[in-house]
């Protein structure tokens, strides 16, 4: 249980996929103009990251059995693409409400490198995660992504009204802001989680 807690908080704060590992920057910058859409994107990513972590863990076991560990990246891309398609179909059939809410963000996740990143980190022998740990890592990674994108969208919404030099308006200031938020998250890297959680 302790290790799961450590993985969970570690993936959200210390090794945040966007702000510490710099994965999934594309949707982070592209879909963070409005808080509402940022929440939708975050939820969709969390969902797919959790599913992808669980399934790629099994697929990796299959690869290792045939001594084909070096094919992990390309196989995971295949798995994630299929998974996103499949999830989209299921949602459309059984939960039209959620399907409408997630809208175009669902298919966009196929190319989110945070999803591929979590799958590859999970099978890293030095981490040595088991199935449950890998799934928790995927879920926490998604939560971390959601947290980052929501924080960022809130900042960008306020930035709309800031009196900026013309050259800095829009995307340039968003890049600088992303850097600043990332530096702020660096502050978490010194945390000793064990002590913090009283373990």
């Amino acid at each position: 249980m302790t290790d799961l807690l450590l993985i969970f908080f570690g993936a959200i704060f210390i090794n945040n996929f966007v702000l510490a590992r710099f994965l999934g920057i594309c949707p982070f910058l592209g879909v963070s103009k409005k808080l509402e859409t940022a929440v939708g994107m975050g939820l969709a990513v969390t969902f797919v990251m959790t599913m992808a972590s669980a399934i790629t863990f099994g697929v990796n076991k299959l690869l290792l059995r045939f001594n084909l560990g070096y094919l992990d990246t390309i196989t995971f891309i295949l798995v994630i693409a299929v998974l996103v398609q499949f999830v989209e179909m299921i949602l459309r059939k059984y939960s039209p409400g959620l399907y409408q809410a997630l809208g175009i963000y669902l298919p966009l996740i196929t190319t989110n490198c945070a999803v591929l990143g979590v799958a590859l980190i999970n099978i890293d022998p030095s981490a040595g995660y088991n199935f449950i740990q890998a799934t928790v890592n995927g879920f926490a990674g998604g939560v971390g992504f959601t947290l980052a994108i929501i924080l960022f969208a809130g900042l960008r919404e306020r930035l709309e009204f800031a009196p900026l030099p013309k050259a800095m308006e829009g995307f340039p200031i968003a890049l600088i802001l992303a850097g600043l938020v990332s530096i702020a998250f660096l502050g978490f890297s010194g945390f000793r989680l064990q002590a913090l959680l009283g373990l």
Partner: peptide
Amino acid sequence: NTVIAAVLLLTGLGVLFGIGLAVASRKLAV
């Protein structure tokens, strides 16, 4: 042997996923 195994496994996975998606799109058609 590794080359054949790699090709077979990826093709197999691809075909499997392809069939899976095709069946799913029929079954789950809205």
